[in-house]
Simulated scan of single mutants.
Amino acid sequence: MKFFLASIAATCVLSIVSAKPTARQSTCSPNFEGAGVSIITGSVEWTVSPVVAGTLLKKTGTLLPPNSTANWHVEQTGSANPTYIVKAISNNELVVDVVDEQLTLEEIDSSKQTQIWDIDCKQCLPGASSAPGGGEFASGCSIKSVPSGLCATLEMGSEFLGLTECNPVVAQTFNFWTETSA
């Protein structure tokens, strides 16, 4: 009888332990559907000028309405867990790469892991074409370099974008907008 009661008690304890919910943050991976997008946080947007290899990505004040013209194509790489490359719209042979912890445009090279990004968002519409008349379709997104695990960051006191340790801060939280119609 003691063994039977001990078995029941052990089963109850195991049930309680295994029923305990685990803390998990819900994120989504955006479906860009080939749409041109802007990458924006607050009133700051990712830009690059001139659109040539070796140019550092800049942060600039966004025009109103946001994304009146798109700067980027974001494409999935085809991996089971979605990862992406970020191409310049005006030259799809140039992608966002990491050089010395700075974001730069470089020629696309499928062998370079530094050109692959993990994008996790807090909120996503089903796809870029779901943004009526253009507008925000993914928000609260972190953009993380796959090989380094560092996040794209709007560095304070700098006109350029860089990579730093990932923290849930505004300078590392981006929104994706499709081109807005006038």
Rank of each mutant, 00 (worst) to 15 (best):
Pro21His: 08
Asp109Cys: 04
Asn175Ile: 00
Glu101Ala: 13
Ile116Gln: 07
Val48Lys: 05
Ala128Gln: 01
Val170Cys: 10
Leu125His: 03
Ile89Cys: 09
Gly140Phe: 04
Cys124Tyr: 01
Ser111Thr: 12
Asn92Pro: 10
Trp46Pro: 05
Ala35Asp: 05
Ala19Pro: 05
Ser90Gln: 15
Val96Trp: 00
Cys121His: 06
Val99Ile: 11
Leu14Trp: 09
Thr60Leu: 05
Ala128Arg: 03
Gly61Ser: 14
Val52Thr: 08
Ser38Asn: 15
Trp177Tyr: 13
Ser130Cys: 00
Ala88Asn: 07
Cys124Ser: 07
Ser139Pro: 06
Ser130His: 04
Ser68Met: 08
Pro30Trp: 04
Trp177Cys: 10
Leu94Glu: 02
Pro147Asp: 07
Val170Trp: 10
Ser148Asn: 03
Ala6Arg: 13
Ser142Arg: 10
Ala70Gly: 08
Glu33Gly: 08
Lys20Asn: 11
Tyr84Gly: 01
Ala131Gln: 00
Thr60Asp: 10
Thr83His: 10
Pro21Cys: 02
Ala128Tyr: 01
Lys112Met: 12
Ile40Tyr: 04
Gly42Pro: 01
Glu107Asp: 15
Gln123Leu: 13
Gly34His: 03
Ser7Met: 15
Ser111Glu: 15
Arg24Asn: 14
Asn91Met: 05
Gly157Glu: 03
Glu45Val: 15
Ser15Ile: 12
Asn67Val: 05
Ser139Glu: 08
Lys2Pro: 11
Gln113Met: 14
Ile143Trp: 04
Ser158Ala: 07
Val170Ser: 15
Lys2Asn: 11
Ile143Asp: 00
Glu179Tyr: 04
Pro126Asn: 07
Thr69Leu: 11
Thr22Tyr: 12
Gln172Tyr: 02
Glu136Ser: 14
Pro147Ile: 03
Gln115Phe: 03
Leu56Gln: 13
Pro132Thr: 13
Thr60Tyr: 08
Met156Gly: 12
Asn67Trp: 00
Lys59Met: 12
Leu64Cys: 08
Ser38Lys: 11
Ala70Val: 03
Ala138Thr: 03
Thr55Phe: 03
Thr27Gln: 11
Phe4Val: 14
Leu64Thr: 13
Ala70Asn: 05
Ile116Glu: 08
Lys144Val: 15
Gly42Lys: 05
Pro65Ser: 07
Lys58Glu: 12
Leu57Phe: 00
Ala9Arg: 09
Gly162Ser: 09
Leu163Val: 02
Ile108Pro: 09
Ala88Glu: 01
Phe32Tyr: 04
Val52Met: 05
Gly127Cys: 02
Cys12Val: 15
Phe3His: 14
Leu105Pro: 06
Trp117Gly: 06
Glu33Pro: 03
Gly149Ala: 06
Ile119Ala: 01
Thr22Gln: 14
Asn167His: 15
Gly135Leu: 10
Arg24Glu: 15
Thr11Lys: 10
Leu163Gln: 00
Phe137Asp: 02
Leu63Trp: 11
Ala9Ile: 13
Leu94Phe: 08
Phe174Tyr: 08
Gly34Leu: 03
Ser110Ala: 14
Lys144Ala: 08
Ser90Ala: 15
Thr153Trp: 05
Pro30Met: 04
Thr178Asn: 00
Phe174Gln: 06
Pro147Leu: 00
